[in-house]
């Protein structure tokens, strides 16, 4: 194996203990014979040790209190809102209420689409300062969708 390929292994799988015995022994015997690769190994090992020995900083004690407060607030918000309530704004008939609410919803979603640029050309959305894709982050999902733009989806290599 050439030094170039060897170094790829040394800087990754070898120092990270990801090699099986046979491959590890091959690298070791190359290292004992090749001083150039040995210096790459020494430098990489020092670097990795430096990163690994970063002192752990504990999360500040106030963090949980902050999180809990926000969590409770949001839960309270969710509880107090009921979609059904929307249909009893007026004392008129259901049809009147439904019509009013549905047209309000339609207006809101049109306004939403306008703001996020989905019914405008992309350029005007950017000019307006909106970037809808960049902040997509729905943590609950475990299927491929929202995250793929962020990491590992495409164009990263």
């Amino acid at each position: 194996m050439h030094c170039k390929e060897m170094r790829g292994l040394i800087m990754t799988d070898f120092i990270d203990h990801e090699l099986d015995d046979a491959a590890r022994q091959a690298v070791e015997s190359h290292l004992s014979a090749c001083s150039d690769c040995r210096s790459v190994f020494e430098a990489s090992r020092t670097l990795v040790t430096q990163l690994r020995e970063m002192p752990a900083v504990a999360a500040p004690p106030a963090l949980w209190a902050d999180i809990r407060r926000q969590w409770e607030l949001r839960r309270a918000d969710n509880r107090s809102f009921s979609f059904k309530d929307l249909f009893f704004i007026f004392h008129g008939g259901r049809v009147l209420n439904a019509t009013v609410v549905l047209s309000l919803l339609a207006c809101m979603s049109l306004a939403g689409m306008y703001c996020t640029g989905s019914i405008l050309p992309a350029s005007s959305a950017t000019v307006a300062g909106w970037e809808t894709r960049a902040f997509n982050d729905i943590p609950g999902e475990q299927v491929e969708t929202a995250y793929t733009d962020l990491i590992g989806g495409k164009n990263y290599e």
């Binding site: 500040p60 963090l63 999180i67 926000q70 969590w71 949001r74 943590p139 609950g140 999902e141 475990q142």
Partner: peptide
């Protein structure tokens, strides 16, 4: 830096707690 880390950790836990009902125990 610790200030940004605090903000990130806080937001992370809010997301975790609010979306825990969508965690499917598959992963």
């Amino acid at each position: 830096n610790e200030d940004d880390a605090y903000e990130i950790a806080q937001e992370t836990f809010i997301k975790i707690l609010e979306n825990l009902d969508q965690f499917k125990f598959k992963s």
